[in-house]
Design a protein around this nucleic acid. Structure first.
Lengths: 331, 331
DNA sequence: CTGAAAGCGCTTACAG
DNA sequence: CTGAAAGCGCTTACAG
């Protein structure tokens, strides 16, 4: 069965292709009669007409696709929710949001984005210079490093604030000597560094000593060494802020084998609000994020980049309230 | 800067557009001279020519994009690795693999696939009938329910075999009364049901009583009730096969609060080989999967669906060896 | 108020 | 061995 084209609709409705296009794209200024409009709509519907993306893209020079390039972040609940939310809010704005997952530098992005002539490319993490240049040449707007910039970026999600919030909570519970559990994985650096930076600054602002940073992996051995460092120094830490929930869970497990009581000997706070966190014994205190709001902010940025009218923004990028402390039993 | 087209390359190289197309698509049968070929290639390269996806798609009626539709599966390490691996192997075959993430039935797929005129649509999980019909009309091959079919499907990854492997391991360790920890989340049903089915059949084949199934959520309370059911019956279970590692971790946590020793009072095996599993105390025994191989199998199926020549298949779809027992401390 | 025509960039049957 | 021309489906400036 051959494809139904706008020409078919035009013939069937007894109008020209031009009229079909005008009706379907809602271009009112040409003042089409209500009757013509109705007939075209009815016919298109009856024939099951779906405009050709290729035809439109060829003509307009760009498609309605937003291509999100995702490096191989360690799997995170948060990332998945964010993707879902972004797809939804871009969908409402008439854009299709597709994801390109790639590991390392193996993928020749050059050969990929040409297939999907995207209206925008959004890079989570940052793109190799060669790819960025290619996009530049093709005049495809690139939103780079969405999650990594110094400030809150386009999502309104500040990594610094996450670290700050952790410290503020621990300080409010009376802790002064605080350890920071960083992660020893280069792929996580874009998140870990700014969180640590925020934590460090918060300590300074509160008049506390700088956090005692230990870098570790997601393993029990690694966590054990870290715990030893925090607890056996001249001024032992009484609380630890972990880069994320997984690291916090590793610390938690190691404390059990070392018979260190949580939260009494050592308080602990993670980031992400993973479901597993509530399963731990004791249940993990953590920082949660409103990813729907963050995705909404990014959508506004994307639409601005394509020059589309901004949607009825429910909140500005700095409306705050994206982060929330979730207190359970480890603090 | 306007786009570099094949016409530009042709003019610059002093040949026709036809010749450029032939050279770039490697159509040898026309017997182009080596010199012409070299000059075209060099020119294309120098000008930074990248063929227009839209132009090609319009002409050929389909693009080089494989669109994978992913419902909101609970986040799983396994799924992410699989996506990465699939992108890689399709990339090698010259196809771009993009993912469309959607939650529930909210997304009007109808309006999405038209933007990206995909060569194939691969549905992880199954598609609403309306969407399937739309694709059918457009003559876009649909690989539906990739993970759900009765057999091994296109990935060679049999959910039944996973359940069977768990039971065989527990039986080999001497267990006869086995509990099964199912999950109470409709989104997981496509995985949970066949795994349970495989476990049940394995018990039958081994002459063991059917597993005592308890359905639970990812919470400690829920796990506590499950553990009570398994341990307080007339013939208490001595081992539990869990739907996945997360469920197993919930059971593990609950056993600790109930002072049930693992593995002595109750052995436990999960599925997925999550990193957190090795952090647990005791470390979790589980089933791992070779997702690169599984993705390779699916790629072969996709290429067959588009009528492309199969790649140099390193292994048939039933080459086995995709699943592996990873024994740690809970069995 | 509506339509005929051009052109986006590509591939390929056909003609030399 | 190489090229001129048609046509994929769309949108839009232009002409009535």
């Amino acid at each position: 069965m051959p494809r139904v084209t706008s020409k078919d609709v035009a013939r069937e409705a007894g109008v020209s292709q031009t009229t079909v296009s005008f009706v379907l794209n809602g271009r009112d200024e040409h003042g089409l009669s209500a009757e013509t409009r109705r007939r075209v709509l009815e016919t298109a519907n009856r024939l099951g007409y779906v405009p050709s993306g290729a035809g439109r893209a060829l003509r307009k020079g760009q498609s309605n696709v937003v291509l999100c390039v995702v490096p191989d972040f360690p799997v995170a609940e948060a990332m998945e929710q964010f993707k879902l939310a972004l797809g939804r809010s871009l969908g409402e704005a008439g854009y299709a949001c597709v994801y390109l997952h790639h590991a390392g530098t193996a993928t020749p992005l050059a050969e990929l984005w040409q297939h999907v002539q995207p209206a925008v490319v959004v890079a989570f993490g940052s793109l190799p210079a060669a790819d960025a240049q290619l996009l530049h040449r093709a005049e495809i707007p690139l939103l780079d490093g969405v999650f990594t910039p110094g400030g809150t970026g386009l999502t309104g999600l500040s990594q610094e604030d996450i670290g700050r919030l952790q410290i503020e909570h621990l300080a409010a519970r009376g802790h002064r000597h605080i350890g920071y559990a960083a992660v020893d994985d280069p792929r996580e650096r874009p998140f870990c560094l700014p969180r640590l930076e925020g934590a460090t600054r918060a300590c300074r602002d509160l008049g506390l000593p700088a956090p005692q940073v230990v870098s570790m992996r997601y393993s029990r051995d690694s966590a054990r060494n870290a715990v030893v460092e925090w607890t056996h120094g001249a001024t032992p830490a009484t609380a630890v802020a972990a880069f994320n929930d997984l690291i916090a869970l590793a610390v938690l497990a190691s404390c059990r084998t070392q018979h260190i009581g949580i939260p009494d000997d050592l308080a602990l706070i993670g980031v992400d609000d993973l479901p597993v966190g509530s399963l731990a014994v004791p249940a993990l205190t953590t920082i949660g994020m409103d990813l729907t709001a963050a995705a909404g902010n990014l959508t506004a940025g994307i639409l601005a980049a394509v020059g589309a009218p901004a949607p009825a923004a429910p909140s500005g990028p700095d409306a705050g309230g994206i982060l929330a402390l979730i207190q359970r039993e480890t603090t």
